[in-house]
Amino acid sequence: MDKTKKHIPLSGLRDDVTSKCLTQQEVLNNAKYTQDGYVKVYGSIVGDIEES
């Protein structure tokens, strides 16, 4: 797979600049459950999870 992949030089990578983000509301509109600005995921769906 790598043999046919495109090569680029290090200088061709992306400049370290920022651009506008989505608003919190736009993010939360994509979630079924939300709380206090967070996306809420129920343990029963994802199983036993730990903080990260």
Binding site: G12, L13, R14, D16, C21, L22, D36
Partner: peptide, 28 residues
């Protein structure tokens, strides 16, 4: 920062989005 205010469709992994090239500074 307030939660979920520093994101875009790419880092949210939303459908029909494609990542940009890696950040050169991080590699440097």
């Amino acid at each position: 920062k307030d939660p979920n205010t520093q994101t875009c469709p790419i880092c949210l992994g939303l459908p029909n989005t494609e990542i940009l090239l890696p950040n050169r500074r991080a590699v440097e």
